[in-house]
């Protein structure tokens, strides 16, 4: 399982990339995308997925 970013809602601010502990988020074109292979959903590390909690446009949800 991994999380995904709704490209229509993403403003490209990069808060998710900054806060992702796994380096799983990179810019693709004008918006960000999550590498499902690297995403750990922050399990066992943080109470909630960091990208979801940090995203100002609530653009990230479970895939």
């Amino acid at each position: 399982m991994a999380y995904r970013i709704d490209a229509g809602a993403c403003t490209g601010c990069g808060a998710c990339e900054f806060d992702c502990p796994s380096g799983a988020i990179k810019m693709k074109g004008d918006v960000y995308a999550i590498d499902a292979g690297k995403c750990t959903e922050c399990k066992g590390v943080f109470a909630s997925p960091q990208c979801v909690a940090a995203c100002p446009s609530d653009a990230i949800s479970q895939a």
Partner: peptide, 14 residues
Amino acid sequence: APACNIQCNYCNRK
């Protein structure tokens, strides 16, 4: 610096 760590009720950067 596009990222922000708070949401203010007077702000919408879209």
